[in-house]
Design a protein around this nucleic acid. Structure first.
Lengths: 140, 140
DNA sequence: TGATTTGTTAGACAAAGTCCAAACATTGGC
DNA sequence: GCCAATGTTTGGACTTTGTCTAACAAATCA
């Protein structure tokens, strides 16, 4: 487990460490993700950030998440055709995806080996490997 | 490799074999997928089916693909947040996903072993395992 | 035949995400 | 302090994927 209690100041440092200018909105969005360590959709992030008084526009939420993605601060998780999840865990890991509840559970990739994969097409390079195990309650 | 040259009559039989009433539209949609053995989006399927004279509505394309999915005649492949691909190969397999071209390449799952996965959460059952290897041309 | 079920359709609708020009900081130079 | 330059945010229009609905058509069956 990593550090558990992040402050907004930690976020500013984190952003700077990734070459991102830490504005108020960016700090709030980062804080939403990192303080919960959960997989959130853009929608959910917007709801969290604008909980009390509306502060941050839709455009900024999307801009910021794309910026974070570009700087490898968060990762996109694509498991549901209807929405993308953003994952503050950028270490190598895979996912259980609970089809009933929509919940995502991390699987540390260091424990997992995948064998017997064919060679990559020539001239190609691996950008990332996603393993998604879709699960559901027994006896549905 | 499987049988290569499907006819529309083959499609009617295939549909019946899966408990689906083979209507004209359903046969055309199945034929689009199975005769090419490619991963197609709903959009692409609609374009193929309506190539000459418009025959099939958007609603029918989506209805039909969902019906096929329900009867395990095709499989959804979720790799791109912007669209779902439909895959006529329902055998166990994984995918290379070319991030640059959007192309999907099948990987036979019989050759692949995955080790070191943690136990499923209690009361849960595996519905499917997707491995997606995102690739791109070297030296971009 | 009429009644019921099954399929198809156009078009309205919804939701996720992008785009853009205008407005708004924030910074550094003077 | 003022000014420009740069970077950021914003609302709203827009696009795209997909769903829904109500009407219509075709087949089934009694």
């Amino acid at each position: 487990m990593e550090k558990q209690h992040y402050t907004r100041d930690d976020m500013a440092g984190l952003l700077r460490g990734h070459g991102i200018n830490p504005t108020h909105q960016r700090i709030e969005i980062a804080y939403a993700l990192f303080s919960r360590q959960e997989h959130l959709s853009a929608d959910q992030i917007m709801a969290i950030v604008n909980d009390r008084h509306s502060e941050t526009s839709k455009a900024t939420v999307y801009n910021t998440l794309n910026l974070f993605k570009l700087h490898k601060l968060v990762r996109e998780v694509i498991v549901d055709p209807s929405k993308v999840f953003y994952d503050p865990n950028t270490g190598p890991h895979h996912h259980f995806y609970n089809l009933q509840s929509g919940e995502l559970i991390d699987i540390d990739a260091r424990d997992v080996q995948i064998q017997g994969l064919p060679a990559l097409p020539t001239g190609m390079v691996t950008e990332g490997v996603d393993v998604i195990i879709r699960i559901r309650p027994q006896h549905t």
